[in-house]
Design a protein around this nucleic acid. Sequence first.
DNA 1: ACAAGTATCTTGCTGAGCGAGATAATAGAG
DNA 2: CTCTATTATCTCGCTCAGCAAGATACTTGT
Lengths: 157, 157
Amino acid sequence: MPDQEGEELVERAEPGTEMEIVHLLRAVAVDLGRHSTRFAQRNGMHPTDVRALIALMDAARAGEETTAGHLGTALGLNSAGTTALVDRLERAGHVRRVRDARDRRKVTIEVDERAVALGWSHFGPLIDRAVDLLRGYDERELAAVRGFLTGMREAAV
Amino acid sequence: MPDQEGEELVERAEPGTEMEIVHLLRAVAVDLGRHSTRFAQRNGMHPTDVRALIALMDAARAGEETTAGHLGTALGLNSAGTTALVDRLERAGHVRRVRDARDRRKVTIEVDERAVALGWSHFGPLIDRAVDLLRGYDERELAAVRGFLTGMREAAV
DNA sequence: ACAAGTATCTTGCTGAGCGAGATAATAGAG
DNA sequence: CTCTATTATCTCGCTCAGCAAGATACTTGT
């Protein structure tokens, strides 16, 4: 048997029940994961590499520098694994290592512009679709979605 | 540096915007993934093993038998990887291999009752919390949540 | 029967991530 | 100002999930 692309076992609960939405949320989580994985494979990366780029871009948008150690902590890797991860990303040209001028033990990781563009070209359409959907909602509907997602985040800790 | 548990880099968009909800959804997907991973590690399993158990239980609930090949396809593994996966799960006592009586090339995988109970003890509270939350919603709010999640699933293909 | 097809398993390998410890730089006590 | 403790990253050797290729076992169509 050759290799194949993963395919969801679609499962459903009785329509209209709360359980239906619970299953739907799980399905969305799985589908988003697969969406990331596909992006990774298309660009010769591993899921962890994509998670790393997202973490780096998030921090950059929040105006924070990310050191190697920071990144490893965020991803749950130990120091050896973090070094290997940054090596891979650097070798692929997605990030640069920059020695911190103030504390020269630190290495800050900078994302290459082309990696950012690559990410947008893949995740942009998904984000656009989400924003489109939500524009059709009134304030109470938005609050419902927000409340449900926030509640699930808190419960998943 | 010893190993550590992953921790989310919390990022936010301007409150009240659609982008806030987009980020929230992504955060939920990440948190649910981490919730699964934690379950895996606590029980000496790998993320793939948990995905496999969930796929098996989903199929069982839908009244379908799952063969080794089926399972591998659902998880995106090739046949060698699938054999190794089932070996691990069987060694841990979570599943049993049962030769199909009609077609004796096939091996159907049955989940052990204790694995089911174990899963419920971990994911049950999360599901309960979700159902609780949703019980407070009226029909229009439920439709909003359902519509958003369904739309995101379709967009993530 | 028997050739072709299908389902699973075996073998040997690659590579992500771990544990332990080396190396380099900073900070704090005296 | 130097010596020690601490912090940040990297190196080395290893384990194990998953892959490619092919072996094995069973079924089906002719």
